[in-house]
Design a protein around this nucleic acid. Structure first.
Length: 598
RNA sequence: UGCCCGAUGGUGUAACGGUAGCACAGCAGAUUCUGAAUCUGCUUGUCAUAGUUCAAAUCUAUGUCGGGCAACCA
C-alpha cells in the first residue's frame, strides 16, 4: 500500500459556488466549460491552474470541458503551438479528467439547427472513448458562422464599416476620463455596410483600410464599449484555414460566439477580461440568440516566485537562447516541468492547494515544491548515487571481495521490495560528506570519526591522503562489518549515515542539477529587466557515480537518490547504458540552515 | 485625477451576521540506518475610520493601498 497523497478533494471556491447554484436552480442541467489557449506559445504553469480549474469543474459536476484553439490572429499563431498545447493538456489531465475532455470529429464545423423557430449554430462535443478521428475545437472553424453573425449585427443596425485609420481611431476613442466621439462613418446605411463588409471579405481592400465596428457608445466610461472593432483585414495565411480568409474576427467578437456555438455554460477567464464582460454580454444579447447564453467569470492568474510567467518573456528566454528551448526544465512551462520530472498529479495538487480567487497574489514556490516532494516521496524508489565522488578505501577488505547488502526500495511503500547493492574495498562517498576540519554538529565523516554507510556498515576514518595542492583525494577507513544489519554490532549508534557506491561496480552518468531560474523572487520588481537577475547557477552538470541498478533505468521512472533529491532519466538525452539524469527537486535540507547559522 | 476589481498571520486560502480555521514557510522538541519522511507543540492575522446590529472579517459609507482598462493582440 502506498501513501499516495489523496487526489485533491472536491473543493469549493467562488466559481464552483456559482456552478453549483446554477445546477441547483435548474438554470443548467449539464455543465460545460472550456480551456481556450491561443496557439502563440507554449503553455505554462499559469495555464495549468486554468486547466485544473476548468477540467476540475467538469469532473466535479459531471460536465464537459472543451479544448479550443483561440486562433483568430493568424499573424501570431503557429501549428507548432497547437501541437504542444494538445500534448501538454493530455499529459496534465491524463488519468484524472481525460474522460471530461470535449473534442470534435476532425474537420467538423457547426451544424445549423432550428431552435425556437430560429436558425442556430451548434457544435456538440464528443467526450467518449478514443481520440482517433477527433481534434480540438478551433475558433477558426467558426469563421463562416461568426461572419454570418456579423452580418446579422449589421442588419440589426448594431455594426458598421469604418474607414478610419488606426491613428484616427485612436483620436476618436477619447481617453479613460474623456468620452470619445462618433466615427464619421457610424451612420452608414445598412445596405452600404453590407456591401462594404462583403467586399472586405472578397479581398477588395488592403490591410487596415477598413474595419467592422460594433455600434455601442463612444461616451461609455468603459473603453471596450466605445464601438470596438470586431473585424479587421489581414491578407495572411492562417495555420488552420489556409488562404480562405483575409478578414479575421477580433477576440471579443469571436470568443463569446465560440462559447455559444459550443454550448459553453461557464466561460472562465482571467481578471484582465473583467472590463470586457459587458462587451461579451452585449454581443450575445444583441444577436437575439435562441439558446441560453454562456456566462463569463474571471479569476486571478497565477504569479509564482522566482520565475516569469508571460508568454512574451518566456519566448524571449527561448529565442535569446538563455534556456535550451520551451521544454528547458528550468522554465515554468508545462513541457519544461514535465521534462524536469514533475508528475502531473503534483501540478494538480498544487492547483488545488492555491485555490481560486480574484485576489492578485504572489504564490510562494515552496508550495509548488512541497506538492512535488509529497508526491515523489510516496511514489519513488530509493537509490544510491554520488554526485561528487571522493574515494574511500576500506583497508580491512580484500581487493576482490564483494559483499552484497540489501537495500529497501521505498520505506513509504513496503510492496516496492528490496534490491542488492555491491560493497567493495574501494567506494565513493560524497565530497561534502567528509570534512578534515568539521564544524560543531557535523555528523558525517571526519578524521578519526565514524559514520554509517547506508544499508551497509559503520566505518572509521584512519587516514587521509592529499594531492600536491593539499586537496583530500582519498580517505582510508576500517569497516566494522559486524555493524551490518543482523551483525553483533548492528545496534551500534553513530550520529551520521551517508550514502555511497562501489567504485568498481558503479556506473558513470551525467547528472543535471537544476535550480531556480532567477535569483530574485520577483524578477521584475521595480521595473527591473528580468534578464538582469538570471541565476547563473540554474544548471550545473556533474559526472556522477550511480549504483549499478541504475545503468539501464527505464524511461519515465522517478527515483529518490538518497539524501540528495528526486531524479529521473532525461526523456530526450538519456540512452540505455548511457544514462543522463535530471534532478527534479532536492530533498529538504535542514543541515544547510544549521551550517549557515554556525 | 474616468470606469471596473480587490484587500484575512511571512505567503496563499477558508469562515456566506454568531468560537477567525487550514496549508505552506518559520521556530522548538521527539523519532530516525535519508540532517528526508513522520509525530508533537509554538509564534504571527481580519487595511483604516465611522455607521447598522444583541452580535461585523462578513452589511453600509468614506478613505487608504494594490491590480486592471485607452491594439485593427488575446
Amino acid at each position: 500500500m502506498t501513501n499516495l497523497p489523496a487526489e485533491p478533494a472536491a473543493t469549493s471556491d467562488f466559481i464552483r459556488d456559482i456552478v453549483a447554484a446554477d445546477l441547483a436552480s435548474g438554470k443548467h442541467t449539464h455543465i460545460h466549460t472550456r480551456f481556450p489557449p491561443e496557439p502563440n506559445g507554449y503553455l505554462h504553469i499559469g495555464h495549468a491552474k486554468s486547466i485544473c480549474l476548468n477540467f476540475g469543474i467538469a469532473r466535479q459536476f459531471g460536465g464537459t470541458c472543451n479544448l479550443r484553439m483561440d486562433d483568430t490572429n493568424p499573424t501570431k499563431e503557429d501549428i507548432e503551438y497547437v501541437e504542444s498545447i494538445q500534448a501538454d493538456v493530455h499529459w496534465l489531465i491524463g488519468g484524472w479528467a481525460d474522460d471530461r475532455l470535449g473534442l470534435k470529429p476532425k474537420g467538423k464545423t457547426p451544424d445549423i439547427l432550428t431552435v425556437k423557430g430560429q436558425a442556430d449554430f451548434q457544435l456538440p462535443a464528443v467526450t467518449a472513448g478514443a481520440r482517433d478521428g477527433l481534434e480540438p475545437f478551433y475558433a477558426s472553424d467558426y469563421f463562416d458562422q461568426i461572419y454570418d453573425y456579423a452580418v446579422q449585427l449589421i442588419r440589426a443596425g448594431h455594426a458598421f464599416v469604418c474607414d478610419l485609420s488606426l491613428e484616427d481611431m485612436e483620436k476618436f476613442r477619447g481617453t479613460p476620463d474623456r468620452p470619445g466621439t462618433n466615427s464619421p462613418f457610424r451612420e452608414r446605411s445598412v445596405a452600404e455596410n453590407l456591401d462594404l463588409f462583403a467586399r472586405m471579405k472578397a479581398g477588395e481592400f488592403p490591410d487596415g483600410a477598413r474595419t467592422l465596428r460594433s455600434k455601442i457608445d463612444m461616451a461609455s466610461p468603459n473603453i471596450w464599449l466605445r464601438d470596438p472593432v470586431i473585424y479587421r483585414i489581414r491578407h495572411v495565411e492562417h495555420h488552420h484555414t489556409g488562404g480562405k480568409w483575409c478578414l479575421y474576427p477580433m477576440y471579443d467578437f469571436a470568443h463569446c460566439l465560440s462559447d455559444y456555438i459550443e454550448g459553453i455554460t461557464h466561460s472562465i477567464c482571467t481578471l484582465e477580461f473583467e472590463v470586457h464582460r459587458p462587451l461579451y454580454d452585449w454581443i450575445l444579447n444583441s444577436l437575439g440568440l435562441p439558446r441560453s447564453l454562456p456566462r463569463q467569470i474571471e479569476f486571478a492568474r497565477l504569479n509564482l516566485g522566482y520565475t516569469v510567467m508571460s508568454k512574451r518573456k518566456l519566448m524571449q528566454l527561448v529565442e535569446e537562447k538563455l534556456v535550451t528551448g520551451w521544454d528547458d526544465p528550468r522554465l515554468p512551462t508545462i513541457s519544461g516541468l514535465r521534462r524536469r520530472g514533475v508528475p502531473a498529479s503534483a501540478l494538480r495538487t498544487f492547483a488545488a492547494t492555491i485555490g481560486v480567487t480574484k485576489f492578485n497574489a504572489l504564490t510562494d514556490v515552496a508550495v509548488l515544491e512541497h506538492a512535488i516532494r509529497t508526491e515523489l516521496n510516496a511514489t519513488s524508489q530509493r537509490r544510491l548515487a554520488v554526485l561528487r565522488p571522493l574515494k574511500v578505501v576500506l583497508t580491512n577488505l580484500a581487493a576482490g571481495e564483494v559483499i552484497e547488502f540489501e537495500a529497501v526500495n521505498n520505506p513509504e511503500d513496503p510492496a516496492a521490495g528490496t534490491r542488492k547493492i555491491p560493497f567493495t574495498r574501494e567506494l565513493y562517498i560524497e565530497q561534502e560528506d567528509f570534512m578534515e576540519v568539521a564544524p560543531p554538529k557535523y555528523f558525517r565523516l571526519r578524521p578519526g570519526g565514524d559514520v554509517r554507510l547506508k544499508y551497509a556498515c559503520i566505518i572509521h576514518c584512519d587516514e587521509i591522503v592529499k594531492d600536491a595542492t593539499g586537496q583530500v583525494v582519498e580517505v582510508r577507513c576500517t569497516a566494522d562489518l559486524e555493524s551490518r544489519a543482523g551483525g553483533v554490532n548492528a545496534a551500534r549508534k553513530v550520529k551520521g549515515t551517508i550514502h555511497w557506491v562501489s567504485a568498481a561496480q558503479s556506473v558513470a552518468a551525467e547528472v543535471r542539477l537544476y535550480d531556480r531560474l532567477f535569483t530574485e523572487e520577483e524578477p521584475e520588481q521595480g521595473g527591473r529587466d528580468f534578464k538582469s537577475v538570471l541565476n547563473a547557477h540554474s544548471l550545473e552538470v556533474v559526472q556522477a557515480r550511480l549504483e549499478p541498478s541504475l545503468a539501464d533505468a527505464p524511461a519515465e521512472t522517478r527515483y529518490q537518490f538518497e539524501r540528495l533529491g528526486y531524479f529521473w532519466p532525461d526523456p530526450k538525452d538519456s540512452q540505455p547504458g548511457r544514462p543522463v539524469f535530471a534532478r527534479t527537486i532536492t530533498l529538504k535540507d535542514t543541515w544547510v540552515k544549521v551550517a549557515g547559522k554556525a
